[in-house]
Design a protein around this nucleic acid. Structure first.
Lengths: 289, 289
DNA sequence: CCCTGCCATAAGGACAGCTACTGCCATGAT
DNA sequence: ATCATGGCAGTAGCTGTCCTTATGGCAGGG
């Protein structure tokens, strides 16, 4: 008893003042409607309508019940529209380009949660370098890309940030300062240097250039951060790396913060040429929380 | 599909994070719950939960749907409480004492509507005179009584009012005045008079006494208004009757308003000794609209 | 007085939904 | 590796609800 159809029937009876008309309205036979109404009154334990020869009118209690039944049906209708409106967001694919460390650190947990919230959306990730991300975005081969320190005109969703840290041999002169001492970018870049790029254009050289400084004595230039740490440990020089890239095992190394902290900010941006797809919008909306 | 129980199940799954636990919560087997949830997702055409090995968590769409499902179930719960609260008002009896004309004019239409709104309440009416109403109210033998011009301390529900009208023979001297002329109470009571009471203590004599006047020349005293009209028509005297009591056929009669209008007000009051029953309250509430 | 419109009831049948059981998968412990 | 556990899905069969068809009753209007 008390199927949802019966509540629709109830308000239809109230609207039409007749069981027969209401039955036709909701697509039932007169008999079924009569039984349904009698059943509802029985389960509620109260009479909702008075049956008069020509019409069926609600009782005082019936009026209250009908009013609230409309609320209930309204909520049901709202559910249906919610689902219908959300349908475009349910399926689709998102292609994201990012670079390795960011993917592992910031994106993967978010994407796991996203996959849980939108199981119908397939997310593929590409592991590239930071300037490859930019070209992929411009060509439109991907939907979203992670960029560093995005220009404010692109409305970007910030994923996170990390600090640039100086890494020196433990026995280096600058490394003898107290535990929480800093080192200035200027004095760091004057040292014999191991330039690590991590494959990115944003590295010690570009940071120095932005500050009007140049690296005077680059001993080695390597792509992998870990290679740089080994070289620093062996006393080849000092280096400057993102905090995220720091090794767990720091024996033989001294990690120091910069006097003027420099950070890099990771953000997710859409392609500049076309608006983001419904699926991509869902992801960006989730990240906004 | 989409039974109300299934919506309860839906929110239970969201609350427990597990279909099995939710099934137990709403008193179903795990299998039934699993099928029901699958069925709901099928009919809505969208996935509401992601089934992970240890838990079942809502998708983004699921969260919206669950929220509105709670609204729906809240409305359903509200209906149940409405019915439960109204139950005392559904059955019962009301005994009303009134006097004939009021019953026919004001009370009967109201009681018909009341019977339609509260079919479970039995209303019995007694036809008595106005001072019998008062004694019945005091003894508590009735629930409600119609009284004339009630004292303001009794919170009375006004049913209606009517005017006292002068009735004269068509050829009477005062009756020669223009169509919409009035007659003062003073000059009326000086005429040869037919005193009609309608069985009530409120009549021309009591009205005169209240105004400091006396009837000088009572030719006849009758109980029925209609008897008075016949006597007036034959020229025995003039009379003063409530507007409601006027005959349809007024040939040979002149009906005139009083210069200072006098009215009588009918109101429904409860017994002074005990509070009104739930049924009586329902009636008074309906009349208040 | 019959006819019409509306509601209630009876009997029968169809389908939805529940139960019991089995299988599957992933996790976590031994 | 292996096994135990906990949760979900699938299947077969049955129970019960609810619908349909058909019939009767009741009051009002031509």
């Amino acid at each position: 008893m008390m199927n949802l159809m019966h509540w629709r029937l109830l308000v239809a009876v109230a609207d039409h003042g007749s069981i027969t008309a209401a039955a036709e309205r909701v697509g039932m036979t007169q008999s079924a409607a009569s039984q349904a109404m009698a059943g509802m009154e029985a389960t509620l334990g109260a009479q909702l309508f008075t049956r008069e020869p020509r019409k069926t009118l609600p009782t005082a209690l019936g009026l209250s019940v009908i009013e609230q039944a409309r609320v209930m049906l309204g909520a049901l209708q709202a559910i249906r529209s919610t689902v219908d409106e959300a349908r475009p967001m349910l399926r689709g694919t998102i292609r994201i380009a990012s670079f390795p460390r960011v993917l592992a650190t910031f994106l993967t947990p978010a994407l796991q949660r996203f996959a849980q919230l939108y199981p119908g959306i397939e997310v593929t990730t590409l592991d590239v370098t930071d300037n490859e991300v930019l070209t992929l975005l411009d060509t439109g081969l991907i939907d979203l890309g992670v960029v560093l320190n995005p220009a404010p005109e692109r409305n970007a969703t910030v994923l996170g940030r990390d600090l640039w840290m100086a890494v020196l041999p433990a026995n280096h002169a600058l490394a003898q300062r107290p535990a929480d001492a800093c080192v200035s970018l200027e004095e760091l870049l004057e040292q014999p240097f191991v330039l690590a790029t991590g494959g990115c254009t944003a590295n010690a050289r570009s940071l120095g250039a932005a500050a009007g400084l140049t690296l005077r004595d680059i001993r080695v230039e390597v792509r992998e951060w870990n290679s740089a740490f080994s070289l620093v440990r062996e006393g080849v020089g000092v280096t400057l790396v993102p905090e995220m890239a720091l090794p767990i095992q720091r024996k033989g190394l001294r990690v120091m913060a910069l006097k003027m902290p420099l950070h890099r900010e990771f953000a997710l941006v859409g392609t500049p040429n076309r608006p983001p797809s419904a699926a991509a919008r869902a992801l960006l909306e989730m990240l906004a929380d």
